[in-house]
Amino acid sequence: MRANRITTNLRVADLDAAKGFYTDFLGLSTEEFSLGWVARYTSPETGAHVQLVTRDATAAEDAVISVHIDDVDAAHAEARDRGLEIVHPLTTEAWGVRRFLVRAPDGNVVNVVQHRD
């Protein structure tokens, strides 16, 4: 598996309340998307970004990072072969991504995701 991008997922109680700090003070002024429970903000100058999450819409646990890859099916098979704990099954989500969540040996939950074109 090769990570193309890793996005930090910050847990927040309220997206609207948190948005101003990240967009205004930190300069992450471009809202790439917002689904009401998750939103990503990016600096147009540097590409630095953060994802704010109130709760995962379909998974029982929230991920601390999202790892964007090219072949999520192969990554899922590798995770299973390694005996890693899959905490959310391989799923094509309604918002257009294919993903699964896996628990790292340190206990952190990682969202492994592939965007469909």
Rank of each mutant, 00 (worst) to 15 (best):
M1A: 11
M1I: 08
R2A: 08
R2C: 06
A3I: 10
A3T: 06
N4C: 11
R5N: 12
I6W: 10
I6C: 09
T7E: 15
T7H: 05
T8Q: 08
T8K: 01
N9F: 10
N9G: 00
V12R: 02
A13M: 09
A13Q: 14
D14L: 09
L15W: 02
L15N: 03
A18C: 11
A18R: 11
K19L: 10
F21N: 05
F21V: 05
F21C: 03
Y22G: 00
D24A: 15
D24I: 12
D24V: 15
D24P: 11
L26V: 09
L26C: 10
G27P: 09
G27W: 05
L28W: 03
S29E: 03
S29V: 02
T30D: 08
T30V: 10
E31C: 12
E31R: 15
E31A: 09
E31N: 14
E32W: 12
F33G: 01
F33W: 11
S34C: 14
S34D: 12
G36L: 07
W37C: 12
W37R: 14
V38Q: 08
A39G: 07
S43T: 06
S43K: 11
S43V: 08
S43Y: 05
E45Y: 11
T46V: 05
G47K: 12
G47C: 06
A48P: 04
H49F: 06
V50A: 08
V50I: 15
Q51L: 07
Q51K: 05
L52F: 09
V53F: 05
V53W: 02
V53Y: 01
T54K: 10
R55M: 13
R55T: 13
R55Q: 14
D56Q: 03
D56V: 01
A57Y: 09
A57G: 08
A60T: 07
A60D: 12
A60R: 05
E61Q: 15
E61G: 03
D62I: 07
D62V: 04
I65D: 07
I65S: 04
V67E: 00
H68M: 13
H68P: 03
I69N: 07
I69F: 04
D70M: 01
D70A: 14
D70V: 04
D70F: 00
D71C: 04
V72C: 02
V72D: 02
D73A: 15
A75I: 01
A77M: 13
A77I: 07
A79T: 02
A79R: 03
D81P: 01
D81C: 00
D81W: 05
R82W: 13
L84K: 05
L84H: 10
E85A: 15
E85W: 01
E85K: 15
I86A: 00
V87H: 00
L90K: 07
T91K: 11
A94D: 12
A94S: 14
A94N: 10
W95G: 00
W95F: 09
W95K: 03
G96W: 03
G96L: 07
R98Q: 07
R98I: 05
R99L: 10
F100T: 01
F100D: 04
V102F: 02
V102S: 00
R103A: 03
A104C: 08
A104P: 06
A104Y: 06
P105E: 08
G107L: 01
N108F: 14
N108E: 13
V109Q: 01
V110K: 01
V112W: 02
Q114N: 03
H115I: 06
D117I: 01
